[in-house]
Design a protein around this nucleic acid. Sequence first.
DNA 1: CGCTGCATTGAAATATCTCAATCAATGTGG
DNA 2: CCACATTGATTGAGATATTTCAATGCAGCG
Lengths: 251, 251
Amino acid sequence: MITELYLKGRLRHGLSQEEAEAIDDAIDHVITLEPREKLVTRGEKVEQSYYIIDGSMMRCIDDARGFRQIVGLQVPGDWVDLHSFPMKRLDHDVHALAASRLAVFRHERLQKLIDDRPHLARIMWFSTLLDAAMHREWIFRLGRLNAEGRIAHLICELLERLRLVGRLEESSFPFPLTQQDFAEASGITTTHANRTFRLLRERGLLDHDENTREMTIIDEQSLRELGEFKPDYLYGEGALHLNTAFADKPA
Amino acid sequence: MITELYLKGRLRHGLSQEEAEAIDDAIDHVITLEPREKLVTRGEKVEQSYYIIDGSMMRCIDDARGFRQIVGLQVPGDWVDLHSFPMKRLDHDVHALAASRLAVFRHERLQKLIDDRPHLARIMWFSTLLDAAMHREWIFRLGRLNAEGRIAHLICELLERLRLVGRLEESSFPFPLTQQDFAEASGITTTHANRTFRLLRERGLLDHDENTREMTIIDEQSLRELGEFKPDYLYGEGALHLNTAFADKPA
DNA sequence: CGCTGCATTGAAATATCTCAATCAATGTGG
DNA sequence: CCACATTGATTGAGATATTTCAATGCAGCG
């Protein structure tokens, strides 16, 4: 199954086998992207949405001087821009981070998919609401935390999301973000992001391999405290058993 | 019509008369709130959603020390927490700002409403996506703008949203936010918000009546430049010959 | 080799926060 | 009517966080 990670750890049990297959069948084709390749430009009219099979993407808005604010990061199992299906255009750009493989869904095809299956329409609605919940948490992160907290929170979020879809091996941080990316996602300068990482290193919360350039998370618990990270917003349900809205009626 | 402002200036033309009436008919009852009254608490399980007939609301997340981050503001014509319909609980608190009148929709009733009318389901999906677009713009606002820009941007957004639903008379700012509220929505301290307002006043962009405590917007154009405000993310009709998603198929 | 991209550091400038205090308007109880 | 508490706006002075600008180092790569 190409879309096997969709909502994994969240509502996967709310999808019947038949529905899951119907989603897979609705794929138009699969594309691959180079690292950092641009996929969609703000304002463009779009006719299809993308689902991440493998890789990672970012969504960003540029300021007047051309500096970038990352407004969202997407991992395997996420739709990059499902909201463009109802909206028909995006209010932000979309780029690949790592080399990525995406499933392309034409909106026309999605329309048919949900015409036949109202339950799938609500599943898809639900996944765009998870994005919105993450947006709100990012507003909190930028509005209330200092540089250390912002970076700690972001790391915790990514760890948790990768864990949910089973893409987290060991404790090394498997996400292709440079310090500049962290800065652009955290509303701080690259210089300051660098100094912040040094602080986190000095406190023994994480480490950075000089050679492989890979980050290792040493003390996730302390990072959570520093970033005031509570993962409930990633589930849309708090405890999985609370959400019976969709689990009740698989198909 | 109680919900006559719903999506006004946006997709109102995408709603047929019959659909608009069906929404009104789905109202369970109407409640009123005192200024600053709390409506929903983060994490609570909810069985209904609220639509603002009159008044204004805020959505907020508290930090570890109990300080508040406002993550969203709602005006007449908005749903406060439509996302709780698919999500079943909220990741943030909801409070009234001004005295408000809300229409209450039981989820059960909403379910019936959209079971019969898939087009309405998509309309409601669309309105939660508008919220998400505003969230993204707030991430940009907090991440890339300084205090002046953040406040200017917020003022511009509220002016534009009130204009869209026809609730903007003259140039005075008709929104019951204190300087502390502005601070809590902008990731700055109240003290600094105060100094920022003084700056904006000294530059002649706005004014503040000592007696009535009312703010007057003098130079909206300059505020837009300062806040790098581009209203496209609000998906208003004016900017939106592109959005034909729902206009195509009113019922 | 000499690129290029990314990480790193220093020093000075600036934005913002913290804490403490004052003021004006409003509302309350007596 | 006054005394008093409350709320929101305002200000000052010093501390701190973050930015800016400029420079260096290091690794991979053609």
